[in-house]
Write a protein that binds this DNA or RNA. Sequence first.
DNA 1: GCTGATTGCGTGAGCAGCCACTCACAGGGA
DNA 2: TCCCTGTGAGTGGCTGCTCACGCAATCAGC
Lengths: 221, 221
Amino acid sequence: MPKKLTEEQMAGIIDTGIREFADKGYENANTNVIAKKAGVSVGYLFKTYGDKRGFFTACLEKSLQALTDAISSCDTAGKKPGEKARALIRTTIEFSRAHDDYIRMYYEVTVLRDRDLTKEMADRIEGISAKAYAAIIEKGQQEGILRKDLPAKKAAYLFDNIMMMLQFSFAGDYYKERYRVYTGLEPDDPAGDEALIGQVMDFLRAALGAESVKKSRKKSK
Amino acid sequence: MPKKLTEEQMAGIIDTGIREFADKGYENANTNVIAKKAGVSVGYLFKTYGDKRGFFTACLEKSLQALTDAISSCDTAGKKPGEKARALIRTTIEFSRAHDDYIRMYYEVTVLRDRDLTKEMADRIEGISAKAYAAIIEKGQQEGILRKDLPAKKAAYLFDNIMMMLQFSFAGDYYKERYRVYTGLEPDDPAGDEALIGQVMDFLRAALGAESVKKSRKKSK
DNA sequence: GCTGATTGCGTGAGCAGCCACTCACAGGGA
DNA sequence: TCCCTGTGAGTGGCTGCTCACGCAATCAGC
């Protein structure tokens, strides 16, 4: 049965692709299988996206958009740096658990052996968060809430290290197991979330906060 | 020309394998090519290691051993927790730069889709460092150098997050680029190392140190 | 010591299966 | 009738793995 694909079908290929790439990895994902699962012909897939890599890039695009949207929704004007940070941590954890396939797509980029694409993606993805984080931190420093002796860029880097690892910890098999080993908690269970968020905040507040702020540190557990 | 492989040849296959797996990834590494590069027949490779996965595991084993050795060399008895941490950070950075293929092998595990192997590896690799880190932190807490209100396990987890990201930052293309984006520094150039080590220490000391220790914080940059 | 037999390690051409990609075609819309 | 979109059986190239063979080392008999 030929003729004119519906909008859903066209969007469906991308979603199917994301699921397959996330589950099996780039190499093991099979374009024939993806097309069949999406109810579309292979021919269509290749005519539309050129080749496998092109299709992958399209899938990636959607995943990254969703990720970026979630992150930037935390950066509401008027919020204090501390509130922003807390929102960022909570959103990251929740998003990673709910849309683990998007995170795993992002993780796939990290593994890619295509020098140019790798560089482009790193610049795009990290560029966005690097600027956002550095801005928050700089603002905090100006307001006197955060210590000024650690360069904002380096602080942003250390902050993002923790954010990235959080993302992976709730999406990838290896990182989930690692989370279990370290904390004794089950990553899929949201029960430990609040405690974790509190501890991460606490850790960061201590690491980045100005002396005056440290005193108000609350006991956690 | 057949007959009896030398010790070097036998070790050589593993080294060649590590290089190939690290460079191209598990799927793209070609057993025929590895055998040829190592100056050995494919037949030998498969007779000795069973299949590609078995050969990969053998390569992994050597990489992990080297990594574990380097890490555990920092844990000399008698050192203060702070000294141990500093040695750990320095060693991690230097090792990652010098033996980036070992780190990339480790990273490959992280991507593996083999549930059982993933779990086993996570338990082994992370189990070792988790215990070591937690022990150092607990000791620090008992000595009153480190704050006691953050559970040692969680602290170890956050510490390891930073250590892992440091490893990747000097070994993987994506992470190298990310490091450039964030810090503006060139990851392959050791010139920025001391400053980075100082800042990481500073960050951790602030995050984990007891109040009394914080006062002695030195200005960095 | 010498020689033919025996053993088994290592070889690499070849095979089988997989999968990205093509292209001749079907059929719906204008 | 003429596009033009989408189809899916087919193909070519790649790669993990096999297996029949060759060669050296060891051995048995003299």
